[in-house]
Simulated assay, not measured.
Amino acid sequence: MNTAVELHDSTLAGMTHDGRDLVLRLSPAYVHRSTGRPGVDPGSGWLQDVDLVIFEAMVDTLPSEFPVDLSDGSFSVGEVLWDNSIPLPLAVTGAVTLTAVTCGGEFLTVRGTGASTVMHGESRYFEQFPGSADG
């Protein structure tokens, strides 16, 4: 099963610093599961609390308040870009960038030297996903 956080429909509940790392709490994150491409091919949607840890983080822009619902974004590692998603599980090194737009039109941009995810609690079934017509 292939799994990814969909930035759209996820809530950025807050963030904390852990030394030079930044922990972004997605609570809940909207998680797609599919035998194909999550968020594109048919599968299911789940709600799960997920921490995205960005190593040696440098924050370029932040929303003015938390929690905030996300409407779009992307995550990249080097030259590889995931539009509107973050693959799960995640443990990468190299130049990473998270960009997101809130439903209120504010921006989040964080860069770092690697990233990982930490899942919290049980995932909760939300819906069947029929697949994207854009796929």
Score class of each variant (00 low, 15 high):
67 P>H: 02
133 A>L: 15
121 G>T: 08
4 A>N: 02
99 T>A: 11
37 R>G: 00
89 P>V: 09
27 S>T: 03
17 H>M: 09
133 A>Q: 14
101 V>Q: 12
72 D>I: 05
92 V>Y: 04
69 D>N: 13
96 V>E: 02
10 S>Y: 02
57 A>P: 06
52 L>Q: 07
120 H>D: 08
79 E>T: 13
6 E>P: 00
81 L>C: 01
98 L>R: 08
105 G>C: 07
92 V>L: 03
62 L>V: 08
100 A>E: 06
69 D>R: 14
80 V>E: 12
109 T>G: 03
119 M>E: 15
118 V>E: 12
116 S>V: 04
5 V>M: 11
105 G>P: 08
18 D>Y: 00
24 L>S: 02
83 D>W: 09
55 F>I: 05
19 G>D: 02
105 G>R: 06
73 G>D: 12
103 C>H: 02
14 G>E: 05
70 L>S: 11
69 D>Q: 13
62 L>I: 12
96 V>M: 02
8 H>A: 13
85 S>E: 12
83 D>L: 08
116 S>E: 15
80 V>N: 07
118 V>A: 13
100 A>I: 07
47 L>V: 01
11 T>L: 05
17 H>C: 00
34 S>M: 04
12 L>G: 04
22 L>Q: 05
6 E>N: 02
79 E>P: 06
26 L>W: 02
86 I>H: 02
127 E>H: 13
133 A>T: 13
93 T>E: 10
16 T>D: 11
18 D>N: 09
43 G>C: 03
96 V>T: 06
10 S>T: 09
86 I>Y: 05
32 H>L: 06
32 H>S: 11
45 G>E: 04
38 P>T: 03
56 E>A: 12
79 E>N: 08
69 D>L: 10
9 D>G: 01
34 S>I: 03
40 V>S: 11
45 G>A: 10
50 V>D: 07
62 L>Y: 13
87 P>W: 06
22 L>R: 11
78 G>K: 06
77 V>T: 14
113 T>W: 05
33 R>H: 10
30 Y>M: 09
31 V>W: 01
12 L>W: 06
9 D>W: 12
22 L>N: 04
90 L>W: 05
18 D>I: 01
8 H>M: 07
47 L>T: 03
48 Q>C: 02
64 S>D: 15
31 V>F: 05
84 N>D: 15
88 L>R: 07
